[in-house]
Design a protein around this nucleic acid. Structure first.
Lengths: 183, 183, 183, 183
DNA sequence: GATGAATGAGGCTTCATTCAT
DNA sequence: AATGAATGAAGCCTCATTCAT
């Protein structure tokens, strides 16, 4: 997987994968039909731990919705955006159009579920009066958008200008929940 | 360019490019040193019209900052996100890490300039009292984030669930400027 | 090697080499980095048996220096000049300037060693009184020169006028040792 | 011609020839049928001035045969062996087997004529009593051999060990004419 | 006559895939 | 089950040759 992440599907050689995996090239074909299906299966299995990381920290009992979202964002940024898992997301964006099976799987397992969870949180926020804006429910993507920006920024522009993703996300939450009084 | 967008750098064959361009394979090498520099130069020249499209419609005289941002977003979504130019952005995200020259150029010409322009608009909005939240100035990325989401959604998930990018952006602007009273 | 000898480096096709070797084209690259290093390595390994042939027949115990030189020349002409090994020498002359590594190796392994051996023989000849001319020690090349002529003549002019290389060398030895009384 | 000498037939590009000649590539085809015939014709025309150089200095009236040969060798070494014309000889040795027309022409115009001239000189030397060894007449190649060695040495081994070709030729002439008493 | 842009055949090299061991 | 040497299709690139201007 690391090889695919570093070089993309086409530029990754089975030779390198085999060496990295510590097996012979032929052995790969005992587990996968060909390079394409290996790529698809690897992505699938790599996504699972990412999902687990994301949903690992359950919201605390008495937490505000804002705290929950902030905790979620913190997890995402620390566990995904700034790690190799973030490049996994970029890899999916990069190869998705040529691997519909990958895009499908990612949509089903990550995107739609993530958005559903986010929508639930928004509705809770509205119900509790923390969130004023009702129509946000229609577009939970908006809440997540800066997190995706962070992922892309990290691998494309970090060396031009570092981005404090957590600070950015706090400002974003200020938009949604209103600014906090004290820092 | 269309070939690169459709297949990515590595999977694109010079044969196809030549056929599409209506020239012989050898002719390509009268214009480009090799496949890599062709890719980089094509991207560079393809970005320019995209920039022009984006900054083509000047803000109207008496317009509010929100109107300006909405107009900008509309332009972006209509001229970029829902066209082949959007795939160009995705291509840059996909190949950027392996083509630093491309990422650099994109950062310099599009990202840093775009963010600077956006920051200026935010400051104007704050000065005019349209925008309450002062710290938004630090992260103009937040304003643009849903637009990027729209680009990615378009080419990865559109067939699973269509996304009304303009409506999404309006909701996002509601967060920044406060909800409008009437539709 | 035969292909390189027959056509020179540039005009030799890997296709032909592979076919002649009875392997697929790709197999070549399991043994050599590229065409150039294959050429250099092949030449190196082809020179070794040539050297062995040359130094194979040890000078007989009671032989005169002239006999030793004549035996050496006979070996060279029979084993090199009139065989494919002679074309190897011509190949080195032809491609040497463009393959310094080849020229270097040939100088080290064949030329400098050969000249050293020849110089030793000349000194022995002088010590024994067989050779009158002392300054010949400075240029052992002179002794070998007709042998090289024979190699070149063989592949360039043999069909215009055959050359009896051994007879020529005997005349040359007559210059060095003085004419023999009987045939 | 310089391009062919520097790189050999196959590795020389018509592009470079045209640039060096200060004409366009197409213009070459107004003068030559193709690359091969251009090579052959260029070699032919390049050989002519070499021949002229060689036979330019006529033997002086009262000169001894040894003086004549020494003058000839001096001319050859100064005008051919140590100049680009020497590489022309090496080029012919290199490409001759693949360009029979070249080898033929060279044999006819240079080799056979040169050997005939040399044989005449030898006979004169024998008639005058300068040369003792009668059978040298059969192999005038022997007289010329060190000159050819000098040419090859120059382009292959000069940087390993410089060779004083004129001194070598004098030693060689000592073999033929007997050593001179004083230097 | 001269040009040089365009051509496309052909060469070198890579690498996914196979299969005898 | 595992190996890795061998394969050969396919891609990039070069360059002799052509031909419209």
């Amino acid at each position: 997987m690391d090889e695919f992440i570093a070089r993309g599907f086409a530029a990754t050689r089975l030779d390198d994968i085999a060496r990295r995996a510590g097996v012979a090239k032929g052995t790969i074909y005992l587990h996968f039909k060909d390079k394409e299906s290996m790529f698809e299966e690897l992505i699938r299995t790599a996504i699972v731990p990412m999902i687990n990381r994301l949903w690992a920290r359950p919201p605390q009992a008495g937490a505000s919705v804002r705290d929950m979202m902030e905790a979620f964002a913190k997890t995402f940024i620390e566990e995904v955006a700034t790690t190799r898992r973030g490049d996994l997301v970029r890899l999916i964006v990069a190869e998705g159009p040529r691997f519909p099976a990958v895009a499908d799987f990612y949509y089903r397992e990550v995107v739609s579920r993530g958005l559903a969870g986010m929508r639930a949180m928004i509705e809770l926020g509205i119900a509790r009066g923390e969130i004023k804006q009702k129509n946000l429910t229609q577009f939970p993507q908006i809440v997540v958008a800066p997190a995706l920006i962070a992922v892309i920024w990290q691998s494309l522009f970090a060396r031009h200008a570092p981005l404090d993703a957590i600070a950015m996300f706090r400002v974003h939450l200020d938009l949604i929940f209103g600014e906090r009084r004290a820092a």
